[in-house]
């Protein structure tokens, strides 16, 4: 089990960990104590993922082709 803190995880990392925990529970040898620990972690990860799902806004940033400008134009807008 990873010791990574939920706070530092991205959505996909948290989701992958949740999948790992689910897969662990699919196994034959589910130890109760370890199971309780993992379940607790699973619930925390699910909570984190759900919170991230409430982020509804996608940001659009316009960038210019290299021959037009050196780097990314910082014009950012929300949709």
């Amino acid at each position: 089990m990873t010791t990574k803190k939920t706070k530092q995880s991205t959505f996909s990392e948290a989701y992958a960990e949740l999948e790992d925990i689910t897969a662990w529970f699919e196994g034959e040898d589910v130890d109760i104590d370890e199971g309780l620990k993992r379940f607790e972690k699973g619930v925390a990860l699910a909570h984190f993922c759900k919170q991230r799902l409430t982020e509804v806004e996608a940001r659009v940033r316009e960038i210019r082709a290299m021959y037009e400008s050196e780097s990314i134009n910082d014009k950012t807008e929300s949709i």
């Binding site: 959505f11 991230r52 799902l53 409430t54 982020e55 509804v56 806004e57 996608a58 940001r59 659009v60 940033r61 316009e62 960038i63 210019r64 082709a65 990314i72 949709i79």
Partner: peptide, 17 residues
């Protein structure tokens, strides 16, 4: 962008015209 926004959030779109 409309469909993207309706389905998912928190994503950054780098648009190159």
């Amino acid at each position: 962008l409309r469909i993207l926004q309706a389905r998912w959030g928190g994503v950054e779109v780098l648009h190159l015209h």
